[in-house]
């Protein structure tokens, strides 16, 4: 499976030549990774200290993106903010894949009453807009980036449960699984050897879109003042705090928003490419 992913990665790079539209997404993602890894070398200033007497300054040589409401360098905050974004992406992806696959497998492979109950719950949860689930979780747990991650995972989880369950049900009816069972293979072994590798593609595709959703949700919750706490350089929080100075200092809101948009756009664009490659059932997912 890893080999397959690697091959897809290589193909992706090769396809840049055929598809120039991929240049932007790939360079944005690379830039994001580089910024996150080398934030302290790239950022010209501190992201948490500022000069109150030099606040809301327009872009200049010293501050290419200007300064914010506390006189902090906006560029430096965006650079450090990439760490927040990546952290959110990675944790949300990990937890939703692992938990979602586990629950989905349980429902799909074991079946029976467990399946009925889980499917019913997932149906109900999916009828509630994801934003509301995230808001409810935040209301219970309180503010903070870690809680935001929990909120997003809980909002995303039903998608995975439903996806994995449906894949597993198809997969377990297949001949080779039946054959292994007949040969006396253990359930867990069947899952590991036969089922997981065959359903990994769609899950990876779904995970890409989860990455995009995670960035958007974190930004949205922070924008509502319910997510990251100051002075975390969360892009959404930066937008929230700059909102009131819109009229006199638009630059403070423009740049963090662009950062969110470019990141999400790039992830989505790559996700679509991946989907074309890995998931033959692309059409179904469009819903």
């Amino acid at each position: 499976m890893i080999q397959r992913l690697g091959a897809v990665g290589l193909e992706l790079v090769a396809s840049v030549r055929r598809d120039p539209l991929l240049v932007l997404p790939l360079s944005v993602i690379s830039a994001l990774l580089i910024m996150a890894l080398f934030a302290s070398y790239i950022a010209p200033h501190s992201y948490e200290r500022g000069d109150l007497l030099a606040r809301l300054q327009p872009p200049s040589r010293e501050h290419p993106f200007g300064t914010d409401h506390l006189g902090r360098d906006v560029l430096s905050r965006i650079v450090y903010g990439s760490r927040v974004t990546l952290m959110v992406i990675l944790t949300v992806m990990t937890f939703s894949i692992v938990l979602g696959t586990a629950i989905g497998l349980a429902a799909g492979y074991v079946g029976g009453t467990l399946d009925v109950v889980l499917s019913r719950v997932v149906d109900v949860v999916m009828s509630i807009p994801a934003v509301l689930i995230a808001l409810a979780v935040v209301a219970v747990l309180g503010q903070g980036l870690d809680r935001v991650v929990v909120a997003i995972v809980l909002a995303e989880l039903p998608l995975y449960v439903r996806l994995v369950r449906s894949l597993v049900i198809v997969e377990k009816e297949k001949l080779y699984v039946e054959a292994s069972k007949a040969l006396g293979a253990e359930g867990l072994r069947i899952v590991r050897v036969h089922i997981l590798p065959n359903i990994a593609g769609p899950i990876v595709v779904q995970a890409t879109f989860t990455a995009a959703t995670a960035v958007l949700f974190e930004a949205a919750l922070s924008f509502l003042g319910l997510g990251a706490e100051p002075p975390t350089p969360s892009w959404g929080l930066m937008l929230y705090e700059s909102k009131q100075y819109f009229r006199i200092a638009p630059h403070v809101a423009v740049f963090p928003g662009l950062a969110i948009f470019l990141t999400v756009f790039s992830i989505n664009a790559l996700g679509e490419k991946l989907r074309d490659r890995l998931d033959p059932r692309a059409r179904a997912l469009l819903k």
């Binding site: 924008f223 937008l239 928003g257 999400v264 756009f265 989505n268």
Partner: peptide, 16 residues
């Protein structure tokens, strides 16, 4: 793709 990648709150601010 651009459409569903836009953070609606930022887009709202830009429209304002």
């Amino acid at each position: 793709i651009g459409s569903y990648s836009i953070p609606v709150f930022w887009w709202g601010l830009m429209l304002i």
